[in-house]
Amino acid sequence: MTAPIRVLVCDDQALIRTGFATIIDAQPDLEVVGECGDGRAAVDLARRLSPDIVVMDVRMPVLDGIEATRLLAGAGVEHPVKVLVVTTFNLDEYVYEALRAGAGGFLLKDAPPAQLLHGIRTVATGAALLAPEVTRQLVGRYASRIRPTEGTADDSALTPRELEVLRLIADGQSNSEIAATLVISHETVKTYVSRILTKLGLRDRVQAVVYAYRRGLVT
């Protein structure tokens, strides 16, 4: 059997923290290895427990979730830890900063349990996750402030099909949804996504979405 995904839950509200932990621990493929209520504790515990992923709140005492994410998953971190940020809708500025800090994705705190579990599994595998219902409003609002990574190629390097896939990624579609939209296989979509990231010098789907808005490929 495959070892369960090891999860560290960090939220300063005990009720939410306990609720998340209860939902996660009920899954056979997930295991909560620790809980904490501030970003400094999250960094210390993550370094000691080596979780596969940290479910991270944003506004917390001692050290906020953005700085904690930067210390765990930011550029230059020797052994980065995957981070899934949870936030409320009116904190989109914090989510933007969290993505820049290295978070693999974000969800809203009022997301249903199934969406939280899906988000944990998705980010833990190395894929990025953007909550579809806020992708346009959040990323579109802040895209003009984001610069492509150093050495990023122009999107003219992409084929017409790759551009089409990039636009669908920016629209918040998953690989399965893109496959259904374009009537191609899931594996073919994965190949297109990999090529897009390589050609544009992007780290993951989060950066791909931001790039698409930055370049005016979506409106």
Rank of each mutant, 00 (worst) to 15 (best):
M60P: 00
T88G: 11
V83N: 01
V193I: 10
Q115R: 13
G151S: 06
G76P: 01
H118D: 14
R100H: 07
V206H: 00
A26M: 10
V7R: 07
R214N: 15
R100Y: 08
I53Q: 06
V206M: 01
G76T: 01
A3H: 08
A21L: 12
L197S: 05
L99V: 01
D64M: 05
A101N: 04
D110W: 04
G216D: 09
L117A: 02
T22W: 03
G37F: 02
A98E: 00
M60N: 01
P148M: 02
E78P: 14
Q173K: 15
R17A: 06
M1K: 15
D29G: 08
P80R: 04
V95I: 12
R6N: 04
D155W: 14
A46D: 04
A180Q: 14
T69W: 07
G76K: 08
V210Y: 11
K199H: 09
F20A: 07
V86F: 14
L130E: 11
P28L: 11
G140R: 00
V62L: 03
P113A: 10
Y142D: 04
V134R: 04
L217A: 08
G119S: 08
A179Y: 02
R195F: 02
V210F: 09
L63G: 02
P113Y: 01
N175P: 09
E133A: 09
Y213G: 01
T87W: 00
K82L: 09
A114M: 09
V123P: 03
A143T: 07
Y142F: 12
V193S: 01
G74V: 11
S50Q: 05
T122A: 02
I146W: 12
A170F: 02
A208W: 04
L63R: 00
T87Q: 05
A103W: 00
A170G: 15
Q173Y: 12
A68P: 05
T2W: 08
P112C: 15
V210W: 09
Y192A: 08
A42W: 05
R147N: 10
P112W: 03
T191G: 10
A170V: 03
G172P: 00
A127M: 06
